[in-house]
Design a binder for these strands. Structure first.
Lengths: 166, 166
DNA sequence: ACAGATAGTTTGTGTAGCGCCAACCATTTA
DNA sequence: TAAATGGTTGGCGCTACACAAACTATCTGT
């Protein structure tokens, strides 16, 4: 549904402000700031933001096939391979062949991986403090909750193995 | 330095409880999904997510020097030049020399730019619907508000080149 | 008025992420 | 047995970005 609030958007200075949900640019903006800071914080741990995302997904889903992971992360399968290679080389993740279908790899966090993820998240706290500094603790809590719920469907959908067609 | 659980070492093993600050990965994740969708929606308008961010900042700050813009966007000055070249070539933005300091360019949205930004945001609504679909409208409102406040300080701060009425 | 700093621009270099294609293996399914 | 599927590898090409160097125009301080 495309609603034009009216084609009159003009007036440079004091208009409309139909700021209902214009989250796109803001989200991008915030995420960028967060990433810039995260990178430096994460570097000593040998991780990059992507890795964190992948690890988080894996923790929350409790393991998934690479294909499903590629789906959740919305990135190309071939690149997922590289990502997992990194993580596995670091011992943070494990690929096991699925007993049901031995073509598949079931990817799971290792204990070390979970621990490292935890550390990383702690280390990240300062970055978040900086980026989300304008929010009060309570608000940040809400923010986190909303983030999680927004991301949730894809992430929490742990079954991850159901898929055909496509 | 290796991060150790040290002083906040309560709960070394419980995976679920420290759900306070976990926004980093989620933010990144959501932003990525949003960007993927935004790109396709924005393409027909000849814009990319970065442009959107820049335009948004410019609108919200009501104009700023390139240097200030580089600061807000946290990107290198030389790359801002290219970004603005695009935008100016498309007539969405205008560089005027500052009367106070003629070395400076004051960058401002043009009327066309404001209009285009508006259109882009409308076009983006569907992308947002998709990505934030799990949130109820009211929640989305809150989410947007939080985003805005979190981003706010940096954006609103811009050294206020007083200037209205383009 | 001159030197040095500053805003912006241009060009060029290097790095990294990522989508995509193609070839290939192991395995499953028809 | 043939075809489809999950994963892997390698390669191509594009884009974003930081960074550096050189240049112009302009400001500022002594």
């Amino acid at each position: 549904m495309v609603y034009r609030a009216g084609k009159l958007g003009h007036m440079p200075a004091a208009p409309v402000d139909q700021s209902e949900r214009r989250s796109g640019a803001l989200l991008e903006y915030l995420a960028r700031r967060m990433r810039l800071r995260s990178e430096s914080v994460l570097a000593p741990l040998g991780l990059r933001p992507r890795h964190l995302v992948a690890l988080t997904v894996l923790r929350d889903s409790g393991g998934s096939s690479q294909q499903a992971l590629a789906g959740t992360l919305e990135m190309d399968g071939t690149n997922v391979v590289g990502l997992l290679n990194d993580l596995e080389a670091a011992g943070l993740v494990e690929r096991r062949r699925s007993p049901q279908d031995r073509r598949r790899h079931v990817v799971e966090l290792t204990t070390v991986g979970a621990k490292r993820l935890n550390e990383a998240e702690c280390a990240l706290a300062s970055a978040e403090d900086e980026v989300l500094g304008a929010l009060a603790p309570g608000e940040r809590e809400i923010f986190y909750d909303l983030l999680r719920r927004a991301a949730g469907p894809a992430v929490t959908c742990a079954d991850a193995y159901v898929d055909e067609e496509r």
